[in-house]
Every structure is written in C-alpha cells, then in structure tokens.
Design a protein around this nucleic acid. Sequence first.
DNA 1: GTGGTCTAGACCACC
DNA 2: GTGGTCTAGACCACA
Lengths: 123, 123, 123, 123
Amino acid sequence: MFMIDVQSKQPIFEQLSEQILKFISIGVLKPNDKLPSVRSLASQLGVNPNTVSKTYQELEKKGYVYSEKGKGCFISNNEAEKMIESDKLDQLSNLLTDLKMHHIDKDSILKVVETVYGKDGNV
Amino acid sequence: MFMIDVQSKQPIFEQLSEQILKFISIGVLKPNDKLPSVRSLASQLGVNPNTVSKTYQELEKKGYVYSEKGKGCFISNNEAEKMIESDKLDQLSNLLTDLKMHHIDKDSILKVVETVYGKDGNV
Amino acid sequence: MFMIDVQSKQPIFEQLSEQILKFISIGVLKPNDKLPSVRSLASQLGVNPNTVSKTYQELEKKGYVYSEKGKGCFISNNEAEKMIESDKLDQLSNLLTDLKMHHIDKDSILKVVETVYGKDGNV
Amino acid sequence: MFMIDVQSKQPIFEQLSEQILKFISIGVLKPNDKLPSVRSLASQLGVNPNTVSKTYQELEKKGYVYSEKGKGCFISNNEAEKMIESDKLDQLSNLLTDLKMHHIDKDSILKVVETVYGKDGNV
DNA sequence: GTGGTCTAGACCACC
DNA sequence: GTGGTCTAGACCACA
C-alpha cells in the first residue's frame, strides 16, 4: 500500500507522511481507521521503525492522526480531509502569485489547468 | 536589491538563486547584465562568500548565467526567460496533478486562479 | 458514572484513578462504599479488565481503597479525603514555586485565583 | 548550566526543553542568543546527540527557538517569554479548577500562595 | 502486542 | 564547524 524511494532527496518520514495524507484525502483512509503498526510498516518498507515512528508523531502533532499506547495509531476524525484540502489550495495560491510575479499570463495558467483536468467541466 | 531570510528552512543559496531568476524573468536583469561580485553581494547580505559563490555556480550549471574569470558573472542570453517560464509551468502542472489526486475539483482551482489573477482576462 | 478518553495522552488507568479520587473527595464515594467489579467497570468503559485491575491496585497501594478477595474493592476509611486534599495542595505549591521562578508576580496569581473562585470569600 | 536527571521518569528531551524555557522566561537566555551546539551540549550532559537534537526540534516547532543549518540554534524573538507566561497561568487555572472541584476552599489556596510568595505584596 | 524513548554511530547538506 | 536524517538495536510503559 505504501511506497517510498530511499534514494530520494526528500526525507523518508516526509514521503511517508505525504502518502498517508494523500490516502486520507482520497478517502482510502477514513477517520478511526487503524494505521499499520510502527514495526510492521517499517519492516514492510524496509526502513527503520524509528523512521515510521517519527512519521506518526509528526502527523499526530499536526492533528491528522492520534495514537494510543499499546493499541496503535489511528486516523483522526477532526475534519482531517478538509484541513488537507485547505492546505493544498493555499499551496496553489502561493504558486500562482509567484507565476503572476513572473509575468506569466492567465491564459497559460488555464491551458495547464485544462491539460491536467481535461477541457470539460468534470473532475 | 536582494533579500534573504536566514531563519528560513530554505537554504540561503536557494533563496538567492530564486530571486535572481525572478529578476531575470520580470526583466529587471537582462541578458549580459553583470551580477554583483561574490564578495560585495556576500557582505551586503551578511552571508558567507562561499554561499554566494555556490549560488552563481548553480545558476551557471543550469545555463541561466555565465561567468568570466576576473570579470564577473553575467546573465546568459540563451532565452533564460523562456526557460524559467517553462520551469514554472512545470511546477504548476505538478501541483495540479497532486490536487487532482486529492479529488479537488476544477472549479475550486479556477476560483483560486481568479482570486489571484482577477476575474477578467488581463494579466 | 465514570468517563475516560482513550485518545488522551494520559494513561487510562491514571484517568480512572483520578476520577475515583475526585468522587471520594467530593463525597460521592464514601468510606466502605463498594467500587464496581473489575469486569463490570471494564466492560462498561470498553477497556481491558487488566487496566481497571491495575487502577484498583494502584489505589490500594496508596491506601485510598482496600480489596477483599471474592468480595470486591472498597473505599478506605483512613481519612482518604484529607490525604487527597493534602496531595492537591502539594501540587499547587509545586506549581506556584515554578511560577515564582518564572518571575510571575503574586498579583497575576491572585487574579487567576479570583477568576476561578470568585472575588468574594466563599467556596 | 543545564542539569538533567537520567533516572527520572520524565523524558530527557522534555526535562531539557523545560529548562531552556525556564532560562528564557527568567531572562538568562534572550532573543537571538545562541544555544550550545547539539553535540557539545550532548557530551556535556552525557546524553546522545539525538536527544538534544530532538529537544531543539521540539522547541522550534513550538516557536521558542529557530535553527540555522550550519550555524546553530537560537532563541526566537517572537515574544517567547510572554507565550511561556501565558502557558503557565493556564496551568494554574486548570489546577485551581480541579482544586475547587475537590471542595478545597479559597482560604487554603491563599495560604499556599502566601507560603510560596511571602505574605507581603512583593515579588 | 502497541507506541515512546534512548543510545551508538553513521552520512548528508549547509555555512 | 553546524543541524537534519537515518539505521541498528535496546528498554520501558501501556493494554
């Protein structure tokens, strides 16, 4: 289910974190779903348990998951999906502001949007 | 002219690099314009000369600038602006692909675009 | 009657322990009152019976309750209330010492006291 | 300057964190002061560099310090002192609410306050 | 069994 | 030199 690239410049714990958030946001992981145990996920990915543990702790601090000692780590139910969506749209806004500063016109933007999303109105 | 934030998680050389590219793309820096000397820019920014040097070397590798021993570092004339624009649109494409994977619909995207660029077609 | 939060960082057995002490100190539980059986309380709270058992054992160690094999667990009569009160005042003393070390002045303390207890002298 | 108790049940990184906060709040450590390097503090305390590193990262996430790769870790200047004071008064408020629920009267509270702070209005 | 903490020692990017 | 990340392996508290 999870995939990491140990060669990547991006830290493993960050790759893993992003994947979990992605699974939350696309609905594969739902509130109160149990994440794999630290040890099992670590061995499955071939990484150190500490690395997985760090990932879970990071996500917990951000409120996306909660952990119960002796039981496991679970998806948080406080509207994690919406938090993620809001974060992503912020990223888009920042990038667009940057593009605008580079004098890239709206039409170029829209062309890219349509390349990715298709020309019609569907998702 | 240049501004860096030493507290930022983003490496200084990267901040500096991005600013130079920004100035190229908005036309403040034009082909064959001379960049400040490594030493002067370093002392002006209060950073290590090695850091400025590294910035120039990175930009030279990517073809945005060229340096001549004993003379200085200059903006390259091989269509640097277009290269930058293409890079930025790639970033946008990547982000949009990510947003799509998160099931964020096209309308939300367009709303953000219009917030940043204004509703009419101008730049 | 009892409530626990499984998501809390505080161990369940500790939450339970504190609640029992609270009920003793406010007089809901009186000397020689019988506590729920380990099994019934565990199933009622949806926790592991071991956890409830541990709670009772901890309280027994501290002298707040006593247990009789085959009969159950009962509130101790050796001035449990006063012991609790003394414990709590110790906590307050420790916290105040900490606040003093942080250079927080007496007036700020008194203001908080009055916010919680009301400005007049009643309880 | 720093002291830890490796025997304590409280995690080392937390002890260290609290001490640093204490030094900030009493003014021994001021904004932009440099903390000891991860390695030097670790060897001085006889703990693992990772443990110190974790402490610094925790404090950074909470905004009390900022770190610059290759340079060191520094006290943040965004009103860290006031943040700490506010935190501490919150703790006091919580404890007092608890005491009130235990039917401990205001006079007992005030007696403790005066024991710690002295009967007169100074400090 | 679970997650949380820690040590020992390593490599990396940055300055 | 600095902080950031990771591995290997250990012990603890909790359920």
